[in-house]
Design a protein around this nucleic acid. Structure first.
Lengths: 249, 249
DNA sequence: ATTCCGATTTGATCCTGATCAATGTCGCGC
DNA sequence: GCGCGACATTGATCAGGATCAAATCGGAAT
């Protein structure tokens, strides 16, 4: 049994919500927010707990408030592919569909803000701001999913690991509202096995490639889970991606 | 040089459009359709021609009317991953973003119905039906993209080929408005190389696996491009997917 | 018919990542 | 301290696909 959940925001009121500027409700006017508030409730999960199984009937849609969840598919013989990482403000479920297409599992301790599905759908038709924001978020997720397809389909194991580390470092910097910079460090929120499931590799290969990147001086390890990146440029060079882009001024 | 384009619908009027029931405009009322009609124009491409390069400024969004296009990414060293197949009624581009994230290439001869971007965006804010339909389509595409991630990340070469054939046979049957059945046949709209790009394989492996499926009696070839499927169940068994689902009554 | 060229098939070999197996590390409860 | 279990690392071997290379097919132009 794990320690008690410790919500990182004091009350459960929208004005105090840590994701109010990014979530599906971020475009809402005060009166719309009030109507959402009336149908919302929170749920907490411990790391490792399932939130939804694929095929389950879904009686709610939700936003991730704190913590991380994974979206994944499993074949009968046990092969598993993670198809998305759900971070704070990401949306779970979809209006207009009643069974879940993928498994959702809490990767870390997790708090989600749920809306009962049918009132939420009613609200969507009556208040355009929700639909607009959801469309925007869905288009972004579609782009991310497609970018990930390149990683899965064409990158080598080493490039896959470097790509994952680059993404996590970027998002971690964004979370702390600073630009990523040399010498930065962050915690890996995933086990080696979860990384393997996300990258389409085995956990042994993940471990070996992390060791290889360490030996090459691209990253340093502080414990098993904390990563230090001495040079972001060198890390980016390992991802196989175009780096030219544009320097951060 | 190829033969002249031969549009498969006589006029270019919405009431006569082959995708009017599926496209982004399918929910529109007559007056909304009229406003869309005023900003639309058609473009034709021959097989192999680029429609948009990644990074290009996009001055329009569009619906595929006839033909097939691919959405793909290429790394500097030439590795290519197709991230989507755009079939009739699929949407190209996205409101609210001005440069294309991926290359779009005509796989077969192609006709698209374009809307200038900024009038289209205006229309979206004033008529909810377009946004609603676009959200629905985008959510469906996101699910498909995620399903494809399982194919790319975890399936064997043989399973990948079988999955692709299964998908094309399903969509082909849907196009002809019949249920897929044993003995059905269809044309492969893709070269071996395009299939390889879609599946994250080399063209040699694609060719070998197709030969292997033929030798195993799972499929028959009629020329290089026409596929006959004696038993859909046997094909499905090769995809690695759960087949239990539910019989078609 | 002949040539040509792109698409495809097939063969031989190599190499990356999977698999099978053992060992190491760390935190925790007793 | 000790033993246990979850997670991670490392080693040895194997195999599925990639790569390099050559042959074949089939349609279009001459």
């Amino acid at each position: 049994m794990k320690a008690k959940m410790d919500l990182s925001f004091d009350t459960k009121e929208c004005w105090n919500c840590p994701i109010k500027h990014q979530a599906v409700c971020s475009r809402c006017e005060p009166d719309e927010l009030k109507r959402l508030d009336e149908i919302k409730y929170y749920r907490n999960y411990e790391a490792g707990q399932p939130v939804i199984w694929a095929g389950d009937h879904m009686e709610f849609v939700a936003s991730v408030v704190t913590g991380i969840a994974s979206l994944s598919q499993t074949m009968e013989d046990g092969r598993t592919q993670m198809v998305g990482l759900l971070l704070p403000s990401d949306f779970i479920g979809r209006p207009g569909r009643d069974s879940a297409p993928f498994d959702v599992v809490a990767v870390s301790d997790l708090t989600i803000c749920c809306f009962r599905k049918s009132p939420f759908e009613d609200l969507m038709t009556s208040t355009p701001h929700i639909g607009t924001r959801l469309l925007e978020m869905t288009l972004d997720e579609l782009d991310s999913a497609r970018e990930w397809m390149l990683v899965l389909g064409r990158k080598t194991a080493r490039e896959k690991i470097a790509s994952l580390l680059a993404i996590i470092s970027r998002r971690d910097a964004a979370l702390k509202k600073q630009t990523p910079k040399d010498g930065m460090s962050f915690d890996l929120p995933l086990t080696r096995e979860a990384m393997a499931d996300y990258l389409g590799l085995t956990l042994e290969t993940v471990s070996r490639q992390i060791s290889a990147l360490k030996k090459a001086g691209i990253i340093e390890l502080d414990g098993k889970r904390r990563i230090v990146v001495p040079s972001l440029e060198r890390l980016m060079n390992e991802t196989g991606d175009d780096v030219d882009g544009g320097l951060i001024a």
